[in-house]
């Protein structure tokens, strides 16, 4: 697991109980969202399965014997969804994608990378973007495939690229 510097709240026991007071809860949710984003970024993950959440040290601080319940996590994720920082993948809202960058930000990042490498109007495979040697060191290297596709689709809507399907592979052409 990647090193992560836990914020003070992580060791503050009531942090793991959703607060009843509105203002306090807002602070709590904000702190959770930051923590979740940073944790996933550090561990290069993009999805959270609520049913398995308590296996992760993120939601289960054994040192102080406090866990974030599944309902509480759902509350936090739904709040993140309001600002476009997360989205449910399945209808039962068990699996969630978390965007530590918004989809637009991801899209811009990809587009800038392509432009600065002179790849406009050439076709790249998604595999190249995610695993290729050229993208090592880029933030989107190793990014979850679904998130990558969504980011590219948001870029496609803005007319900056086109997603292309060939054989059983996917590619993208930046304009």
């Amino acid at each position: 697991m990647a090193e992560i510097s836990w914020p003070w709240q992580y060791n503050f026991p009531p942090f793991f109980t959703i607060q009843p007071h509105g203002e306090t809860r807002a602070k709590q949710l904000e702190a959770w969202q930051q923590l979740i984003s940073e944790y996933l970024k550090a561990t290069k993950q993009s999805t959270i399965d609520i049913r398995e959440s308590q296996n992760s040290p993120l939601f289960n601080n054994t040192a102080i014997n406090r866990k974030l319940s599944q309902e509480s996590l759902l509350t936090i994720l739904e709040d993140m969804a309001k600002t476009g920082r997360a989205a449910p993948v399945d209808k039962s809202k068990n699996v969630w994608e978390v965007y530590w960058h918004s989809l637009d930000e991801w899209g811009n990042m990809l587009y800038n990378w392509a432009s600065s490498n002179g790849l406009n109007n050439t076709v790249c495979t998604l595999y190249e973007l995610r695993e290729g040697e050229n993208t090592v060191g880029e933030e989107f290297h190793g990014l979850d495939l679904n998130v990558l596709v969504k980011a590219l689709k948001s870029l496609e809507v803005r007319g900056k690229c086109e997603l292309i399907e060939f054989d059983d592979n996917q590619g993208v052409k930046f304009f």
Binding site: P14, Q19, P20, T24
Partner: peptide, 26 residues
Amino acid sequence: VKEGLAWVDTQDTSETLYWFPSMFAE
């Protein structure tokens, strides 16, 4: 709690605890 000065912790085995972040060392 209503004044936002204390946080509620319901995960203690015996009862609800009320925490004051202003006194929490970290």
